[in-house]
Design a binder for these strands. Sequence first.
DNA 1: TTAATATGATACCAAATGGTACTACGTCAA
DNA 2: TTGACGTAGTACCATTTGGTATCATATTAA
Lengths: 106, 106
Amino acid sequence: MTLQTQNVFRALADPTRRDIVQMLANRDMTIAQLTERFDMTRAAVKKHLTVLSDGGLISVEIRGRERVNRLEPSGMAPVLDWFSYFDQFWDDRLAHLKAAIEGDEK
Amino acid sequence: MTLQTQNVFRALADPTRRDIVQMLANRDMTIAQLTERFDMTRAAVKKHLTVLSDGGLISVEIRGRERVNRLEPSGMAPVLDWFSYFDQFWDDRLAHLKAAIEGDEK
DNA sequence: TTAATATGATACCAAATGGTACTACGTCAA
DNA sequence: TTGACGTAGTACCATTTGGTATCATATTAA
């Protein structure tokens, strides 16, 4: 397992961070704008953004004194890759079910 | 966000638990069998199994004095549902996984 | 220049987390 | 019946985590 995979799973484990990800899916936002939406201090939001950045889920564009946070959906790839491990498992289960049904028809 | 969604994300946030999930994808296993594969005590593995159970990712079949842990792939549905929010950002990889897992539900 | 704005960074705290050790209890086999 | 086996449960510990408060720095506007 790569460190990056762990960082992404960890980043998505917190409900506040998942909310941030969904908000950034709609539009880029600064820390101050994000903080308006939550009942916590800007420092707390900043910490969450750091974890999301470590997970490669967001990037930051410096615009004057503002830092615009942008979603990087490609950062979610490690999670989807991990889930793809179960493709064969699910296919096998479905194949067994199919075989059982067909065997029952005879 | 549902409590169940949080429980699944939390369950998958730990690398040991993700390893357990992958092992159980290959075959059902008891706690003792799982513990052989890790460098930690049975009590620690048991705690991880409790978290996985809370997330609906495994079920337990009592067989005599043994407890056989079985993967419940349908428990991953909340995660795939959450990811489907980002359809606009990526291709149909997710749709494929989601169709497979939902087909596995009873 | 000066003051307000937007953010970064650090120290600190309570609670959650991942782990161990130890004990207890039901089940199987001799 | 007795003892080994497989597991559950609890107390306890160190570290991580999510949060606040506070101060520092850079940029914009008057």
